[in-house]
């Protein structure tokens, strides 16, 4: 952010929530959990499991790659968090969305 904006306490709390509930946080967390759970059987993969997947230790490969993607998304949201939003801006955006969003077409 180029210009520093003074945030009220409520706005600061909303900003923390916005970072926590950013889509990238969810994807990152999900992939880290999935990555770990898939990697574990991959490390100790039996010969049967490897044979099943045409001789590739898929669990290890997929697990590690998912883990890496998860870490990527988490570091992305940490390094480039969403911009803070003031209440006035949020209000204006909400109004705009209400007019444009789910109200359906305006008929003349």
């Amino acid at each position: 952010m180029a210009a520093k904006v003074e945030l009220t306490r409520e706005e600061a709390r909303n900003w923390r929530l916005a970072k926590l509930f950013d889509l990238r946080t969810f994807i990152g967390a999900l992939f880290v959990i999935f990555g770990i759970l898939v990697t574990i059987p991959g490390i100790s993969a039996s010969q049967d499991a490897i044979n099943k997947a045409a001789g590739i230790n898929l669990g290890l490969w997929v697990g590690v790659i998912m883990l890496a993607i998860g870490v990527f998304f988490l570091s992305w949201v940490l390094l480039k968090p969403p911009a803070p939003v003031t209440t006035a801006e949020a209000e204006a955006a909400r109004k705009a969305r209400e007019e444009f969003g789910t109200q359906g077409p305006a008929h003349h």
Binding site: E10, N14, P82, A93
Partner: peptide, 15 residues
Amino acid sequence: LITTSTDFFLSGRSL
């Protein structure tokens, strides 16, 4: 987030 009236779609805009 909706109850805090912060526009959660704005975080989508940073994508």
